[in-house]
Computed example of a mutant assay.
Amino acid sequence: MKVKVGVVQATPVFFDINKTIDKIDAIVVDCAKKGCQFLLFPESFIPGYPRKFTFGASIGLRTDAGRDLYKTYWQNSLQIPGPELSRLEQIARENGVYLAIGVTERDALNGSLYCTLVYISPTDGYMGKHQKIKPTGVERLVWAEGTGKDSLRTFDTAIGRIGGLICWENYMPLARMRIYQQAPQLYLAPTADARPSWPATLQHIACEGRCYVLGCNQFFTRSDYPEAYQQFLEDDETILSRGGSAIVSPQGEFIAGPLWDEEGVLIADLDLDEVLKSKLDFDVIGHYSRPDLFVFNAGAV
């Protein structure tokens, strides 16, 4: 089976959930006209990855201004379920495209935020989500640890089995193995990591998991921050995130990208039979595993 996928390297309308969804709508419409059946958007595309923000916090100190900023961030984050999610479902349905979108998710009950990857079907609507189980470094100030229950999973769809992890979760071997054990054909790796070394991570996952890997990042410049937030940046900073999005084959070869220093959509036709063929000489959960020596309890959570 062949499937046409797109990896969206774009800039959100920072801290504005409705205008960012407007941009998602325009991108999906354009890519649907080009035949895309699936689109991946970056980590925290809604409402934007808050790079360099401190939220007025240091050890033993929080400020009123930082709390106000957190409130703004929370108000522009995605609630599940909620009207903004319903709109995303409508966009997927009207264009016949599967969507996986990195969002900051707000919990209306407890007030916490989570870094989340939302999965949406054009026929069935919201399928489920993956919450980041371990935010990195100071991300933990604003993102709670996600639950693994019903989150570390793949989704069987008409265009193949889809699943993945967010950013540096992909450096957690047991988290990767949890996804591998469900035999993903499209492994998603949205990120905020724009280092030159990140594409090698995508290649490693492809070779290890013997699956297509879709890596996705935002492109972000100083001018994309509203004036009120530019105080958090150094005077000489211009490009805040170079991107580096890519699509990698089950043999670890770049099919598209890496894309640097600009917005764009990487589009590729993928043959899912290549996933099966690549397992002739390596299958991490099959003939190249040693369950008699290594025990992994996939049902632990």
Rank of each mutant, 00 (worst) to 15 (best):
C115T: 11
E94P: 06
L85S: 06
D107L: 10
S151R: 04
L141R: 08
I120F: 08
S151I: 06
L85P: 02
P83C: 10
R161W: 02
K129L: 13
E145V: 00
I91Q: 03
L152Q: 05
L113H: 03
D124L: 12
V103L: 07
H130T: 11
I120T: 05
P122G: 12
L113N: 06
P135I: 03
P83V: 11
G111F: 11
G164E: 05
L109P: 00
E105P: 01
I91F: 10
T154H: 04
A108P: 07
I91W: 04
S86H: 14
G148N: 04
V118D: 00
Q131G: 06
I120V: 15
L88Y: 07
V118K: 00
T147Y: 08
E145P: 04
P83L: 13
L152H: 00
T136I: 13
Y119P: 06
N170C: 12
I101G: 01
T123D: 14
Y114Q: 02
M127C: 08
R87M: 12
A92P: 04
S86C: 12
I159A: 01
A108K: 15
R153W: 06
E105F: 07
D107G: 06
R87I: 12
Y98W: 10
P173C: 03
T147L: 14
L113I: 12
E145F: 01
H130D: 09
E94M: 14
I133K: 03
I159M: 07
I91K: 05
Y98C: 06
F155K: 04
Y119D: 02
G125P: 04
R93F: 12
C115E: 15
G128V: 12
V103Q: 01
V103N: 02
K132T: 02
L99M: 15
V97L: 14
S151D: 11
S86G: 14
Q131P: 07
K149F: 12
E94H: 15
K129C: 08
N110L: 13
T123C: 09
N95K: 06
L99I: 11
R106N: 10
Y171A: 10
C167H: 01
G96C: 12
Y114D: 00
G102K: 02
T154Y: 09
I166V: 07
L141E: 04
A158H: 09
G102H: 02
M127K: 10
A108L: 15
Y114F: 15
I166H: 00
Y114A: 03
P122Q: 07
V142K: 00
T123H: 14
I159P: 00
P173M: 07
R106P: 03
G96L: 13
E94A: 12
I101K: 01
G137A: 14
G146Y: 01
E84Q: 15
T147Q: 09
T116R: 05
L113D: 01
G160V: 05
K132H: 05
V118C: 05
R140S: 13
G82Q: 06
G82D: 04
N170L: 09
R161D: 02
G164S: 13
T157L: 08
A100S: 15
L113F: 12
Y98P: 00
I101D: 01
F155T: 09
V97W: 11
